[in-house]
């Protein structure tokens, strides 16, 4: 089952993704067993009890109630999957993110906008500068940064998400216009980006992304929620770097931001 489903699924490159995948595997086992079990029963009855073989129907049919055990078993397995896997995971990884706001290595903001993903990096100081919807400008200031705020000086934006490997990343997902859905297939991350609300998401990448990827190897950000005409092309790149490479990249970006800042 695992290898069959993995044939289809994108590779997993996050610490928590394995749990998501495992639950998907387990539950598909349950589905397969039920489907094959009843399928065999079904095909056999269709064959065994057709009119020519069995001209006279039996009024009572099956007299035992073994099927109740089966129904009970299904309920039990579902309960195990729910209580044993899904709930603990949600408590730890998803709801935990909100409380663990402090315990992380990198903090970023993700803002959906028709039709691109804008990532707000706080720069070297690690503090997000003030932003305001009134300042948003699609070409020069996608985040609506308030340049008069000293904390905003070294902030920069990027339309792809670049992160270091093996670091705990906290992103605050939100949107400036309509609802989008922030989807990182290889990270097993999905979170609706809802205007007016900011939702924390935590994940850690376990691998770096392919160096010079061909198209089909790129890692990406997808948009999973219909957000208008350009929904289909609201794609961004996800780049996972070694820590050094990441720091170099940030330095470059900050430098550029500061240079641009002179002009403000």
């Amino acid at each position: 089952m695992k290898s069959f489903l993995q044939l289809w699924m994108p590779s997993n490159a996050s610490t928590h993704g394995g749990s998501v995948d495992n639950l998907i595997f387990y539950i598909h086992w349950l589905m397969l067993v039920l489907f094959v079990g009843w399928g065999i029963f079904f095909v056999y009855t269709l064959f065994r009890f057709n009119r020519t073989r069995n001209p006279k129907a039996d009024y009572h049919g099956v007299k035992n109630h073994y099927s109740s055990y089966l129904e009970f078993a299904v309920a039990l397995i579902e309960a195990v999957l729910l209580i044993g896997f899904s709930l603990p995971f949600w408590i730890q990884e998803i709801a935990g993110a909100a409380e663990e706001n402090t315990d992380h290595d990198i903090e970023l903001r993700v803002i959906g906008q028709q039709f691109q993903w804008n990532i707000h990096y706080p720069g070297k100081d690690g503090i997000f500068g003030k932003t305001s919807p009134n300042l948003v400008d699609g070409t020069s200031n996608v985040l609506g940064l308030d340049r008069s705020d000293p904390n905003a000086k070294d902030d920069f934006s990027s339309q792809g998400l670049s992160i270091p490997v093996n670091k705990k990343i906290l992103v605050h997902v939100s949107s400036y216009d309509v609802i989008h859905s922030f989807f990182l297939p290889v990270m097993r991350v999905k979170q609706d980006a809802i205007p007016g609300i900011s939702v924390p998401v935590v994940f850690t990448a376990t691998e770096t992304s392919p160096k010079d990827p061909k198209k089909s190897e790129k890692w990406e950000i997808g948009c999973a929620q219909l957000c208008g005409t350009g929904h289909y092309k609201m794609q961004g790149d996800l780049v996972v770097l070694e820590e050094d490479a990441y720091n170099t990249w940030v330095d470059e970006q900050v430098k550029q931001a500061l240079e641009e800042g002179e002009a403000w």
């Binding site: 079904f42 269709l46 129904e71 899904s86």
Partner: peptide, 29 residues
């Protein structure tokens, strides 16, 4: 999640009843 798992059970019951209903029948196609 809990209610969703619970609601799948009556569907299982109905489908099971259908399957078992076939047993012993004189099925015309």
């Amino acid at each position: 999640q809990t209610t969703t798992m619970i609601i799948s059970i009556p569907s299982v019951v109905i489908l099971t009843a259908f399957f078992i209903s076939l047993w012993g029948g004189s099925i015309r196609y």
